[in-house]
Write a protein that binds this DNA or RNA. Structure first.
Length: 364
DNA sequence: CACTCGTGGGA
DNA sequence: TTCCCAAGAGT
């Protein structure tokens, strides 16, 4: 199958089978930019409700640029990879100030935006501005590795580079944005990781993996490393005014800009109560008494897993003063919902808020 | 180049 | 339960 057939079959299939998406075929570079950032390592169904809330709160580049980072992170809460939100916010300021509020339409300018790498630059330029840049994402890697019969490890950068070249050779001058979206749509709905629907695929006639019956072997991916599992102890410190102490995670750390209950990793031969007392002493310079266990939960981050043990605590001695420049704050239970918390900590705040409303008794 | 960085759904 | 992995970028 030559490039013309490849393009025509793919685009015809796309025209008849593409899913509706709130940012699709809108022609608005701002909406396309936001959607592409949200869609990084994120499924359409997961990003869609966030996209609606984001556009409602930040309908323009200027409104986003003027917003507080905390407000942006609050809208992003639960979507994960929070550096995307911080970088997007920073980039919006650059667009507002240096690009007159218009998303750049060329490679050199758009790649100056934080959070815009090769994929996102190509996606925005092709979809919003009809520029001939081929995207390579997980879908394209799967579709093209199967179609071309590439059996090399797709985790390797060299393999991805080869697929980028293959995509560059096939991106048409006409409808480059639709072509890119078509490959990704095919990968998401037909050429799926397991049990691909080869009978419904417009590219079956030229597909090497199909011909060799190797769709389960291609793409080859070297085994992932096992994620370590840590035990984490955190303290929910209450004061006489029914306030709770929360801490802001540093900008350059994991979950940067998000709030949490202070705590840390359990060390060897250490009781979990000891862990919490030690961590709060090291981080905040205070002595606490463990009142009672509050909640235990499992959570998986991108590259490690935790069991979080939360304890209600009372301040025995000292005033919380972080040894780093990390900010801490006493807030009422009602205010917890106004702050951006990552998933595991949000589970704790929900239980606190439920108890506070008297809807649930404390389980020990 | 290899590693870090969230979350949710499906096998 | 456990693992995979999904419209990647920054370091």
């Amino acid at each position: 199958m030559n490039n013309i057939d490849f393009q025509e079959r793919l685009l015809a299939w796309y025209d008849n089978n593409k899913r509706e998406m709130p940012w699709r075929d809108c022609g608005d570079p701002y909406k396309i930019w936001i959607s592409e950032i949200m869609l990084q390592q994120t499924r359409v169904d997961q990003a869609t409700p966030y996209f609606h809330r984001f556009m409602e709160r930040f309908p323009t580049v200027e409104s986003l640029a003027k917003a507080d980072q905390q407000e942006v992170l609050k809208v992003w809460e639960g979507l994960g990879y929070y550096s995307r939100a911080r970088h997007l916010h920073d980039a919006s300021k650059l667009v507002a100030e240096e690009f007159d509020g218009t998303v750049p339409d060329n490679w050199d300018d758009i790649t100056e935006l934080k959070g815009v790498g090769p994929y996102t630059a190509s996606a925005i330029l092709s979809i919003a501005y009809q520029k001939q840049h081929a995207v390579v994402d997980g879908n394209v890697i799967r579709v093209l590795s199967r179609y071309l019969g590439i059996e090399n490890d797709v985790r390797k950068t060299a393999t991805k580079n080869a697929i980028q070249e293959a995509a560059d050779e096939r991106i048409p001058e006409e409808r480059p944005g639709d072509f890119n979206q078509a490959v990704m749509e095919l990968g998401a709905t037909i050429c799926t990781p397991s049990n691909p629907d080869c009978e419904g695929c417009p590219l079956q006639a030229g597909c090497v993996a199909y011909k060799k019956v190797k769709t389960e072997e291609i793409p080859y991916k070297s085994p992932a490393k096992k994620r370590p599992h840590h035990q984490i102890g955190v303290g929910i410190i209450m004061n006489e005014d029914e306030e709770v102490l929360i801490a802001l995670r540093p900008e350059d750390a994991m979950l940067g800009g998000m709030w949490e209950f202070p705590g840390g990793k359990q060390e060897e031969d250490e009781d979990m109560e000891e862990t919490v007392a030690r961590e709060l002493n090291e981080e905040l310079g205070v002595e606490v008494a463990i009142t009672k266990p509050f909640m235990k939960l499992d959570h998986a981050y991108s590259h490690f897993k935790i069991t979080m043990h939360a304890y209600l605590c009372e301040l025995e001695n000292g005033t919380p003063s972080p040894n780093t420049s990390q900010e801490v704050r006493w807030i009422s239970i009602d205010e917890l919902e106004d702050y951006p918390f990552p998933k595991a900590n949000r589970k704790l705040t929900k239980k606190l808020m439920n108890i506070d409303k008297g809807q649930q008794e404390l389980e020990i």
